[in-house]
Simulated scan of single mutants.
Amino acid sequence: MSDLPGDAADPPPIGERADADPTREESLARLLGGGRAAVEGSVPPVGFLVGWLASDGDLTASVVWSLAASAVVLVLSVVQRRTARAVLIGMLATAVAAMIAQQTGEARNFFLVQLLSNAASALAWIVSIAVRWPFLGLIVGGLIGTRTRWRRDPGLLRAYSRASWVWVAQYVVRVAVFTVLWWLDEATWLAIMRVALTYPLIIACVAISGWVLFASIPRGHPGIRAPQVPLG
């Protein structure tokens, strides 16, 4: 089928999708930068886990490993001329977490920042859905240039809201697992689960929320790049 506008077939009746439906051609993973962000987000916790296991639970050594791994990602980002903001934030969070653990004298408290940040993220996403400004819509709208026009499209607003609940679930899963392990003072398992619930969970979240997003768009809708704003 040609991509030229003049060769396009007649549009399908309202309520039916075309074979080349744009809502099916999109990929949330591609819009969010593919798997690179998830991989880079996994590097610091993997570094911490390696350091933790190699040093038999030495917090200082583990933090050094984590920061060193983050520094490698930072250098690669600079060389490739990509934004390094997320890496810098991750390094800062690691340093703060290490300070908390050192001050309290408990290795498990290194994971308090991770636990609390996930709890705060879950709450923030829930509030965004409740006030009809779902974060996923803000993120995707900013990336594809529709900004906030999707809010005036009832179909897209509903789709972004439904898909945002998947992101809430991601944070809730982490909070539940981290809370139990923190309460049991299982620092080693906290390090392991921090890794397990980074890359795999992010990939699953993006895949599932993408499916929910596009499956929730009404039939016959032109897709997320073309919000249908009512006249008047």
Rank of each mutant, 00 (worst) to 15 (best):
Q102T: 13
I89A: 12
S121I: 08
V78Q: 02
V73E: 03
L76Y: 10
V73I: 14
L88W: 13
V79H: 03
L59P: 05
D56R: 15
A95M: 05
W52Q: 08
L112F: 15
T83R: 11
L116R: 07
N109C: 02
S55M: 09
V87H: 01
A61P: 00
M99L: 15
W52L: 09
A122L: 12
V75A: 15
Q80M: 05
T83A: 14
Q103M: 12
V96S: 08
A71R: 05
T60P: 00
L76G: 08
T104K: 02
M99A: 15
M99H: 04
R81L: 07
S55W: 03
A122C: 10
S62Y: 05
T60K: 08
S66E: 12
L92V: 15
V96Y: 05
L59W: 05
A84Q: 02
G90L: 06
W65S: 15
A54E: 04
S55Q: 11
W52K: 09
L76E: 07
L49M: 10
A122E: 10
L49W: 11
A68F: 11
V73G: 06
A61I: 15
W52T: 09
W65V: 08
I89L: 02
V63N: 00
F110I: 07
G51S: 10
A61T: 15
A54W: 14
S66H: 02
L92A: 15
L112G: 04
R81D: 13
T60G: 07
G57K: 04
A98N: 06
S70Y: 03
Q103A: 15
S121L: 13
G51I: 09
M91R: 02
L53T: 12
L74T: 01
T104L: 14
A97S: 15
S70R: 04
V113P: 01
V87F: 01
A93K: 05
S66I: 02
